[in-house]
C-alpha cells in the first residue's frame, strides 16, 4: 500500500536554512552560543576585570584623584579596624541569613519536590515567586512598617502578651535595639524574607531530581528516616542548596538599600561600596570591597567541592 495522495513536505527558505545547519552542527552551535558568549565575555567578565583592575590602584590622599599605578595599598586599607568591622559584620549577617534561609527553604522545597502534584505544584511556584512580582523597595518599606514599634507585629505581640519576650530579645547587646525596625534583628528578618525564593527554587530543583527509588532503597536496606536524610537526600540535594546559598550570600553582601531602611546606621559592605564610589569618590577602595564577596564565595565553593558537595552532579 503506497499512499500517493499525501503531499511531500513543503519546501521553503527556513527549511533550506535548517537543512544547511543540520549538515554543519558546529556552525549551528556557534550561532546559538556566539551572541551570549560575546555578551558574557565583554560585558560581564570584562566589567569584572575592570573592577579587579581598579582595586589595584589607589587614591592620592591630597588631591583625591585616582593614581593609576599598581599597588596593594588599597587592599591594605581593607584591614583598617573600621573597614574590617564592616566586612566581618556583613559576612556574619550573610552567613546567618543563608543558614536561616536554607533551614526554612528545605522543608518547603522538599514538600514541593516530593509531594506536590498538579495544582498544588502550580500553587507552590506562584507562592514562592509572588514576592518577586512587586518592587523590592516597596517590600522593604512594607517590612519597616511591619517591624516598627507602632507596627502590626508589635501590636500582635502585645495582644499575645509576649511584649516582655520581645523586650528581652531587643535588649540583647549588638543585635538588639529600640525596636525591631531599628536593629540588626530587623535587617536580618528582612534579608531572610527577601532572598528566601532564591534558596527555595534551586533546592527544589535538586530534590526533584532525586529518584524516589533511591529513598526507597535506603529504607529497604535498613536506613530509618534520619539516616536516609543524612546519607541520601541531603548529599543529593546539596548542590542545589549550595547554589541557593551563593544567591543568598552574595545578595546579602551586595545589598545597600535594606540596611539603610531597616536597621541601624552602621554600614554593611554594600553600603560601603555605594558611598565609596559615590560621595567619597574612592573607586579603588570600593573595588577592593567588591572583591571581598567574590573571594569569599570562591573559597566557599572550593571547600564545598573538597568536602564532596558536588559528587552527586
Amino acid at each position: 500500500m503506497v499512499a500517493t495522495d499525501i503531499p511531500a513536505p513543503r519546501d521553503g527558505m527556513l527549511r533550506r536554512i535548517s537543512d544547511a545547519l543540520m549538515r554543519r552542527p558546529r556552525l549551528f552551535l556557534f550561532l546559538l552560543l556566539g551572541p551570549p558568549l560575546l555578551w558574557l565575555g565583554i560585558v560581564y567578565v570584562g566589567s569584572l576585570i575592570a573592577l579587579l583592575a581598579q582595586s589595584f590602584f589607589s587614591i592620592d590622599e591630597f588631591t583625591g584623584l585616582v593614581k593609576y599605578e599598581f599597588t596593594l595599598k588599597t587592599y591594605g586599607e581593607l584591614f583598617r579596624p573600621a573597614n574590617l568591622d564592616i566586612i566581618i559584620r556583613s559576612v556574619l549577617m550573610a552567613a546567618a541569613v543563608t543558614l536561616t534561609a536554607a533551614l526554612i527553604a528545605f522543608p518547603i522545597a522538599y514538600y514541593a519536590a516530593r509531594y506536590a502534584r498538579g495544582r498544588w505544584k502550580a500553587l507552590f511556584y506562584i507562592a514562592v515567586t509572588l514576592p518577586l512580582w512587586s518592587s523590592y523597595l516597596v517590600r522593604v518599606y512594607a517590612w519597616k512598617l511591619i517591624l516598627a514599634k507602632e507596627g502590626i507585629l508589635n501590636w500582635f505581640i502585645a495582644k499575645a502578651g509576649l511584649t516582655p519576650v520581645l523586650d528581652l530579645v531587643l535588649s540583647i547587646p549588638v543585635i538588639g535595639g529600640p525596636s525591631l525596625s531599628i536593629s540588626y534583628i530587623g535587617t536580618y528578618l528582612v534579608f531572610v524574607y527577601l532572598w528566601l525564593p532564591y534558596m527555595i527554587l534551586p533546592t527544589q530543583a535538586a530534590l526533584e531530581r532525586v529518584p524516589n527509588s533511591l529513598i526507597e532503597a535506603s529504607a529497604d536496606l535498613g536506613g530509618g528516616p534520619g539516616r536516609t536524610f543524612r546519607s541520601v537526600i541531603l548529599p543529593l540535594a546539596l548542590p542545589g542548596v549550595i547554589a541557593g546559598s551563593i544567591f543568598t550570600f552574595a545578595l546579602t553582601l551586595g545589598d545597600y538599600i535594606t540596611p539603610q531602611i531597616v536597621g541601624i546606621s552602621t554600614l554593611f559592605l554594600g553600603q560601603a561600596v555605594y558611598t565609596l564610589q559615590g560621595t567619597a569618590g574612592n573607586i579603588p577602595l570600593a573595588a577592593a570591597f567588591s572583591v571581598v564577596p567574590i573571594l569569599i564565595i570562591a573559597v566557599y565553593l572550593t571547600v564545598a567541592r573538597r568536602l564532596g558537595a558536588f559528587d552527586a552532579l
Partner: peptide, 20 residues
C-alpha cells in the same frame, strides 16, 4: 511495619544505586 524494619531486601528495576 516500615521497610527499614523488615528483613526483606529489594533489587530495584532501575537498580537505585546511590550515585554519590
Amino acid at each position: 511495619v516500615p521497610p527499614y524494619r523488615r528483613s526483606v531486601n529489594t533489587v530495584f528495576q532501575d537498580y537505585a544505586l546511590f550515585p554519590h
